[in-house]
Each structure stands twice: as C-alpha cells, then as structure tokens.
Nucleic acid binder design. Structure first.
Lengths: 205, 205
DNA sequence: TCCTTTCCGTAACAAGCGTTACCGTAGCAG
DNA sequence: CTGCTACGGTAACGCTTGTTACGGAAAGGA
C-alpha cells in the first residue's frame, strides 16, 4: 500500500484556501486555480481531494458553520449565566475576535450564492436555524415567563440585528464600527435583561 | 440622420433585465447573454447600449437605488407626521409592496459583488448613507431631545434590523415571514415613539 | 535494491465568458 | 422610389473556467 497521504489535512488545507480566496476576491474570484495557488499546489490535487468544485464549496460552507458553532460554544461555556452567555455569543458574532473579520464577507458571499443554489441554500438555512435555536434557548433561560411568540420575535430580532450589522459593516466598516455594533447589541439586549439583574451595563472595555 | 432609436428606453429595458436575471439566477448567472435573452434581444444591442458589462452593472445599481428612493419618498410624503413616516418608510423597506419581493435578492447580489468591486462598493455606501440620513432625520424629528450619539445609534440599529431581516428572509422566507418582520419593526420603533403618542400601534391592515 | 501501486503535477479539452469586427437591414432625406 | 447612414444581429476572437486523461515520481513491501 504505497504512498498514502493525509487526506483530512489536505481537505482542511484546501478548505482554508477556499474561503481565504473567497474573503479576498469574493465569490466570482473563487476558482479552482486560485484555490490551488493559495494552497500551494495545482488543480490536480484539488480535484483528487474533491470530486467537483461544488463539493469543495459545500465543504467550505460546512467548515464556516463549524467554526462559528465552535466559537459560539466556547463563548457560551465561558459565561456564568444565561444572560452573560447571550451577551457573549451575540457579541462574538459581531466582532469576530481573532482577526477573523473576513468571515462576514465570506458569509455574505455564501448567502448570495445560496440564492441561486439549492444545496447552499439548505445549508444556510440549517446553520441559521441552529443559531436561532441557540439564541432562543438563551433568551428563554433569561425570560422563562415569556410566551413562545415573544420568544420567537425577540430571538429573530436579535439575530437580524446582528446579521444586519455584520452585512452592513462588511461593505462599509467606517459607518458601522465595532463600538457602535456592540452598543446597538447592548441596547437590544436591555429588553431581555432578567428582572433581578442590574440594567444592561455590558463589558468593561 | 436615419434610424434613430429611443436610447433611454433601451437602457431601462436592459437594466430591468439585468436585475431580473440577478434576482432569478443570482450573481454568477448574470451574463450578457442571459441579460440579452431576458430582454428579448442579442448581445449586440446590449454592447451598443452600454460600452461594457460593468457599465450595465453600475446602471442597474443606480436604478435599484433610484426605485427604492422614489418609494421611500412616496411613503414619507403620504404620512402625516414624522413617526408615521418612519413607520411607513421602514415598513415598505421590509415588505416590498408591489410584488417586488425580489429586490432583496438583488440587493444581496449587489452587496456581495460590492465586496470585490470598488465602484459597486462606493455606490452601495452612497445608497446606504442616503437611507441612513433619511431615517436619522425622521428619528430626530420624533425625538428632538436626543443627543447626536443616541440618534446615530438608534438610526443604524433600525437600519441594521431592517436590512438583516431582508437578507435573512431572502434566503429563508419561511423562517422570516412578513408578519414577523413587521412586528419586529414595530417593537424596535416603540423606543422612538414620541412622548405624546399612544404606544406603537402600527397600521390597520 | 527493486517493484508495485498510489498520488499528483502537466497539459489538454470543451464550454462559456466578455468583447469585437463585420455586414445586412431598416428607416428617413431627397 | 432611391440612396445613405446608423442600428443591431451574427459570428468570431481570445481568454478563463471546470473537468479529464496521462505520465512521472515517490513511498512502502519483498
């Protein structure tokens, strides 16, 4: 059984290269050759690791979801109560912490592609539903007295605010700086503040 | 001077075809041949009306902005006071009234394209600043006592909420139906309600 | 050491893209 | 009716795309 290569490492390498290209050149710039060049190989390896371009695209989409889910899990786990978790999860969704600010751009690219690709659209919806379920669970923990209807409205309003900020900031970072986004989030979260908690003061810095 | 055609009508026809294609097939499906087919002509006419594809794209972008501005003007003019205008302008931005629901999809497409095209990005910013200025003016009229900082925060929060809802609804209309969007807008507008007004009851139908 | 088998770089392919040159044709002036 | 001129359809160009076929090279077993 000669010459066996690490398949998983290659897929990760190519996935990273894929959405790195996606962040830099946008969706139209996403070509197999660009991905190969960014990954430091040729299209041969790309086509051996993924049967088709769409498979690569879908894998990159899954990886994007996986990363955001991991970060959201971490933010939630590091919080002491439900409201802190809500602040942390939504806050990290806005200002991507480790220089991953490009993820918003990638997200927009995938969203635009999803409007014409059913598979991408389905993955987008699955990812969004997962995010919605997480936020709804946290909101429900903060406000157990709320009925389902209000839970849903508040949850989707918060998510729409955050994603809207991300989208607008991706195209116009000057008009939508991080501080403004965080303040807007804090103001929106004031409604959810549990009764026994001091009103909406968010974070120290 | 023989055989003179209506240039402007052709440009409008082609612009409409452009974003009709954009709405149906997404950004990657936007080709000159697709535009020509949708407009019922060939690429010859397209290239005679516009020197290049980018010119066509920019004109279509301008047309999109123009339409939204006209509708926003109309919504504002039909309102009796500033708060009503705020409700009307933001409300029509969410549920596009005359079957123009595809405009959100087109907007997403242009936004994604703007992330890789400086000219489109500049037009996007100009359009968004125009929208921001309109909303800010109306919010300021509702709440003259607010300082600039709060004006800006509320304005951009409202816009982010509306655009976020539009974006999410474009990819997942089931999860973000019109009624929910309108209720979310109404809840967000409750904060802006002028002191002398009965709380946030929106519109009759 | 050599052989075998898997890997992957090379290069070609057809298809589609934006763009261009060309020429038939349609409409107005005389 | 005839002729001229701008319009626009046709078809080709060069280029890039995703995809595929092929062959050299590298690594483990004998």
């Amino acid at each position: 059984m000669p010459k066996q290569r690490d398949v998983r490492a290659q897929r990760d390498l190519l996935s990273n290269a894929t959405w790195q290209v996606l962040a830099g050149s946008g969706l139209p710039g996403l070509t197999l050759r660009a991905v190969a060049e960014r990954a430091g190989c040729t299209t041969g390896l790309v086509m051996h690791a993924f049967p088709t371009k769409k498979a690569l695209l879908l894998h990159a989409r899954d990886l994007l979801y996986e990363r955001t889910a991991v970060r959201a899990d971490a933010a939630e786990a590091a919080s002491r109560d439900a409201f802190g978790a809500l602040e942390a999860v939504l806050g990290q969704a806005i200002d991507l912490p480790h220089g991953h600010h490009e993820e918003s751009r990638v997200w927009v690219g995938f969203l635009a592609a999803a409007l014409a690709d059913d598979d991408l659209a389905e993955r987008h919806r699955a990812a969004n539903h997962s995010f919605l379920a997480r936020i709804r669970r946290l909101v429900a923990a903060c406000r157990p007295d709320w009925p389902d209807e209000r839970l849903e409205l508040t949850t989707k309003s918060l998510v729409a605010l955050v994603e809207g900020m991300n989208v607008l900031a991706a195209a116009d970072p000057v008009a939508y700086p991080e501080r403004l986004q965080q303040e807007a989030l804090a103001a929106a979260l004031a409604e959810v503040t549990p009764p026994g908690r001091s009103g909406g003061g968010r974070r120290s810095g």
